[in-house]
């Protein structure tokens, strides 16, 4: 179960705005997190609370392939991202590190900054408690679900490797 308050943004939030390249000289999540969304919302870092949820419109995470983008947001305490849809590599990177990203346009449409969001991973539902709206996000294909449930791609690979061969 994920619960947190929403930070709502628009469409095409690119990786340069999530974490500008000038700060990408480290892979340290805590260090990166100090600059999360710096050029988009300079107050974000001061406001964000552990467990908070980012809500955005279309094509979230477009631009570069930098995996430090989801690392930065996770490091800042963000528990999940709900968008109308995601840029391909951002989505892939998030799943590969076991970071929840959901496509759920209905919730995006009704949500405002400050709303209380509850995600139930078992029931696969997202609720905006403030607006009294509950929806199902888009399902992950089986292989992606397996990676996500393993906690990321390398967990899945390493688990497969240590499995005894019959």
């Amino acid at each position: 179960m994920i619960q947190g308050s929403a930070h709502r943004y628009g469409a095409n939030i690119d990786t340069d705005r999530i974490i500008p390249a000038r700060h990408c000289t480290t892979a340290d999540a805590a260090e990166l997190a100090k600059h999360a969304l710096e050029d988009l919302d300079p107050d974000f870092v001061g406001r964000v609370q552990p467990g908070d949820v980012i809500i955005a419109e279309e094509n979230f995470g477009c631009g570069s392939s930098r995996e430090v983008a989801p690392v930065t947001l996770k490091g800042a305490g963000v528990s999940c991202i709900i968008a109308k849809d995601f840029a391909r590599i951002f989505f892939r990177n998030a799943i590969n590190m076991g970071f929840p990203v959901f496509e759920c346009p209905e919730i995006v449409d009704v949500s405002e900054t400050g709303d209380v969001i509850i995600v139930d991973l078992d029931a696969w539902t997202i609720e905006n408690k403030t607006r009294g709206r509950k929806c199902k996000p888009a399902a992950y294909p089986d292989e992606i679900l397996a990676i996500f449930q393993a906690g990321g791609l390398l967990n899945r690979i390493q688990a497969a490797r240590t499995q005894p061969t019959a």
């Binding site: 392939s65 930098r66 995996e67 990177n93 590969n96 590190m97 791609l153 390398l154 690979i157």
Partner: peptide, 14 residues
């Protein structure tokens, strides 16, 4: 195709 850092590690080792 462009990928991220976890993908790279997976590709290197497998």
């Amino acid at each position: 195709c462009g990928v991220g850092s976890t993908d790279l590690v997976a590709a290197w080792v497998t």
